[in-house]
Design a protein around this nucleic acid. Structure first.
Lengths: 228, 228
DNA sequence: CCAAAAGTGTTTGCTCTACACCCATGG
DNA sequence: CCATGGGTGTAGAGCAAACACTTTTGG
C-alpha cells in the first residue's frame, strides 16, 4: 500500500449476491427485474451500494434481505468484478457473494424504487441478464459444484432434518449426475458428519429415517494431489 | 444491483499484491517498508490506488512493477478486504492479488515517496506488518499450498528449464513435507505436463536432465470427493 | 577412488466402483 | 396385495505408498 493521496477520484462500490436454492428438483437462482435504466426490464442479481460504515459481508446480507426477504446462513465472498466498462454510466466495482438457502425458506418480494420483482429461475433457463451478471452466475455455479465435492456445503440447501435420499438427490441435481445409492450412503455415514434423529419421514412407500447435520462436524477433504 | 443513486460517499479502492518466490530453499514474500503514517517503519504489501480507467488486474500489475520492478506472469485475484476499520484514517477497500515469480528474476528497489525499500522475507520470519497485511499473507499462503496440490502453479516459481529435483524441492519447500523421489518422478512424467530438453544441468554429482513445462499442458486434477 | 546427486521398478494394501434384492408402509 | 420408496453387503480393479540400489560426473 503505497501512496496515500486522497484526492483520487473513486469508483463506486457495490455488492451482488448469487443465492441458490433447490426447488422442484432444480437448482434455482434469485433474480430481480430492473425497472430503471440501464438494462431496464432485464434481470439482475440482488445487490446494491456498500454503506460507508458496514463491512462487505454485512452489505451483502443487508441487500439480500432488503430486496428478497431472505436471511441466509451461508454466505461467502466469490470474486470482485472491476472491469472499467462493466457499467455503462460510471466506474462501478462489485464484490460478488455466493449464498445458499434451504428450499423450504420462502422469500418476500420487496421490490423497491427501481427494482420491480424478485423470482427464482432454474440455472439452466436464465432470462436475459443485466451487466456482467451472467458471468457472475456462471462462476458461482462452478464454485458451488466444486465446493460440493470437497466440503459439506450441500447441507446448507437442505432443511434442518432430512432423509438420506434427499441429500443424495441434492448432490445429483447440482452435479447433474446419477450417484450410486449404496456407495453414497456408506460414505456419508462414514464421514461422520450427520447423525440419525429418532424421527421418521412418512410419505409414499416405506418411511425414511430423518438425519441432522452434526453441528460439530468438520468436513473438508484433502484434495487429490496432482503429484505425490 | 438495485438503487442507482450516485450521491453515496465512496470508499477508496486499492490493490495489494502478495508475491511469492523461492530463494535459498525458502518461500519468500516481497514487502515494502513504509515511511509515512500510519504504521510508519512497518512493512506492507506492494499496492496502491486503482486508477479510474484501469482494470483491477492492470492495477495490480502496475503497482507491483512500480514498487518492485517485478513483472510477474502469474497473477490471480485472492480476496477483497473491506473491514470498515482496516485503515485507521479512511474507509479503504483492498482487492488482494496473489502472484508468483521465478527465483532467478531480480527485482529493483524503486522506493518512492512514502515507500522506502523493498525486500524479500521468508514467509516464516515476517517482520511487523501494517494494516491487515499479516492476514492477507496468511490467506495467500494457504491458497498457494492448496493450489499446488491440484494444479500446476508450482512451475511459475521455476525458471523456464529445470531439473526434476528442482521441481520436487519446490514442492517440498512449499508443502513443508518430504516427498518420495520415485513416486514424484513417475507421477509428474505420467501427468504429461513437462517434456525433456536435450540439455543437461551440470553441478556437483551426476548431471541432471533439464525439462521444460509444456505450454499446451492442461493440469488440473479433479478433487477427491467427500461423497461418491 | 571417493563424494555427491541422478536415475530407476516392484510389491502390497487400500480405496473406489459396480452391482441386485428384500423391507416397511399406505392405499 | 400391490405400488412406492427405504434400506443393505460383497467382490474385483485400479490407484497410492513404501521401499534401496546402481549410475554418472567432478575433484
Amino acid at each position: 500500500m503505497g501512496n496515500y493521496t486522497y484526492e483520487y477520484p473513486r469508483p463506486a462500490l457495490t455488492v451482488d449476491v448469487v443465492v441458490f436454492t433447490l426447488c422442484e428438483d432444480q437448482l434455482q437462482v434469485m433474480l430481480i427485474q430492473r425497472r430503471g435504466e440501464p438494462f431496464s426490464g432485464m434481470w439482475a442479481l440482488p445487490g446494491g451500494f456498500v454503506h460507508m460504515h458496514e463491512s462487505l459481508e454485512d452489505a451483502a446480507h443487508r441487500e439480500l434481505n432488503e430486496e428478497t426477504g431472505i436471511n441466509t446462513a451461508y454466505l461467502e465472498q466469490l470474486y470482485t468484478y472491476g472491469d472499467p466498462q462493466r457499467d455503462p454510466r460510471d466506474r462501478i466495482i462489485s464484490v460478488a457473494y455466493f449464498a445458499l438457502t434451504p428450499s423450504n425458506v420462502p422469500f418476500q418480494d420487496r421490490g423497491g424504487s427501481d427494482a420491480s420483482q424478485a423470482a427464482w429461475f432454474p440455472v439452466d433457463h436464465l432470462p436475459a441478464l443485466a451487466f456482467d451478471h451472467a458471468e457472475i452466475i456462471s462462476y458461482a455455479l462452478r464454485r458451488l459444484r466444486y465446493k460440493l465435492e470437497y466440503s459439506a456445503v450441500g447441507f446448507e440447501l437442505l432443511p434442518a432434518e432430512f432423509t438420506l435420499t434427499e441429500i443424495q438427490s441434492t448432490y445429483e441435481i447440482i452435479l447433474n449426475e446419477r450417484l450410486d445409492k449404496r456407495n453414497f450412503r456408506r460414505r456419508i455415514l462414514e464421514a461422520n458428519i450427520i447423525e440419525p434423529t429418532d424421527k421418521m419421514h412418512a410419505g409414499e412407500g416405506r418411511p425414511a429415517r430423518l438425519y441432522r447435520y452434526r453441528p460439530d462436524a468438520v468436513a473438508e477433504v484433502k484434495a487429490r494431489r496432482l503429484f505425490p
